[in-house]
Nucleic acid binder design. Structure first.
Lengths: 215, 215
DNA sequence: CGCGATAGCCTACATGTGTCAGAAAACCTA
DNA sequence: TAGGTTTTCTGACACATGTAGGCTATCGCG
């Protein structure tokens, strides 16, 4: 059910059916073999669709993969934490978001692992990175985007944090998820928070440690 | 007639010659077209080597790419900055390192762009990320890894920073390098520094300490 | 210098790729 | 339901892939 609403924008039933079938078949195959070992023929056969029909919609397996996991990625993006200025309440909220982020990864662990790993799809990885960067950029611009002369341009900061999250995620997934999502969130949050503060305050060489958490 | 100059690693000159020819051919091709459009036949032809000879050494184009850019990656890793505790001198040194890092990227911009972009090689990207993570992990363990009870495990922090650097690099390269290396270094350093401090001090409120024994 | 070892080349084959035309089927609209 | 439209399928093509066996030439070493 959750994987049903891929490609909702098309009006024609046939198109929807074909694309959904292809996506479903690809996801199934990716859970079993490496993406690099999956051919267009395999996917088409798995979807019970002719090979030409595949090429009528996608240029290659990677393009299908990019489309097939859009819904997955959406739920991932919703779990991105919003930068805080250090408020303890918002920190807790952010950690909750991050936990959801890693839980979302875990929910489709096989898929994400295959797509982000060394045998995965650069297309999908780049797509995810871009979208995380876009959301993060919005967060930054929305939160501290008044008039502070930033030493760190927002696009650089967004690329930084997007890559960082993907790096942590890929590493975690490839290691077989040795820690639960909550623990990963707890481990990642200080890094993220440090970055947020670096960007929002843009004050170099602050010797004060970020302690003094009330309660 | 044994003039052994470069026969230290493989023991056979023919291997060395073929592999360098292949690597050279691949690099030349990648500077022109997308990696996804480069076939084994192309590389073999460009290297004036039979196609079978290619398969005698590499499984696919990605594996060749991974091997071909090892030297490049080495010089990249040497430019990785070492974490500091906030000393102004070391900060300047770190910024110099980062500038070298981006300069190294710029030196082979076409290649890195092709390899790290959406049409690139997940294999190479993962390789680079792993190696950056390894070096960073060493830095962390060597610098502050003695007695401080880390909330942030070093492997997570290493994966974080490795991904972040690759994210910034990929974004920069794909945008056509709008800023010079020095500027990128200046923009990236505060983020890196913030992360270092987050990891080394790790003085935030921890929700729940996991039952892992430290030693 | 000669000999075993082995990298490289050639040929061949089964499969996958990307594309194209036209025929057939399913769709949306009226 | 009929009509025109869009999608899918069929079959075919030239090319790329990955693998295998056998042969030649080069290499390293005694």
């Amino acid at each position: 059910m959750a994987t049903d609403d891929i490609t909702t924008t098309t009006g024609d039933r046939r198109v929807r059916r074909t694309r959904t079938a292809l996506a479903r078949a690809l996801i199934k195959l990716v859970e079993e073999h490496d993406l690099s070992r999956i051919s267009v023929s395999d996917v088409a056969a798995g979807a019970e669709v002719s090979r030409s029909a595949f090429y009528d919609h996608y240029r290659d397996v990677h393009e299908l993969a990019e489309d097939a996991c859009t819904a997955m990625i959406d739920s991932l993006l919703e779990a991105l934490p919003v930068p805080t200025h250090g408020s303890a309440d918002m920190e807790e909220e952010a950690t909750r978001s991050l936990t959801a982020f890693f839980a979302s990864l875990a929910e489709h662990a096989g898929l994400y692992r295959a797509l982000l790993g060394p045998q995965g799809s650069p297309r999908v990885a780049d797509h995810i990175r871009r979208r995380i960067a876009a959301v993060t950029h919005d967060h930054l611009t929305g939160t501290g985007g008044d008039s502070t002369p930033q030493q760190v341009p927002h696009d650089v900061a967004a690329a930084f944090i997007a890559g960082a999250l993907i790096g942590v995620a890929a590493d975690w997934l490839q290691r077989g998820r040795p820690r639960p999502p909550a623990e990963m969130a707890a481990a990642t949050w200080p890094l993220l928070n440090a970055y947020y503060r670096a960007d929002l305050t843009s004050a170099v060489s602050v010797p004060r440690p970020p302690g003094e958490s009330a309660g």
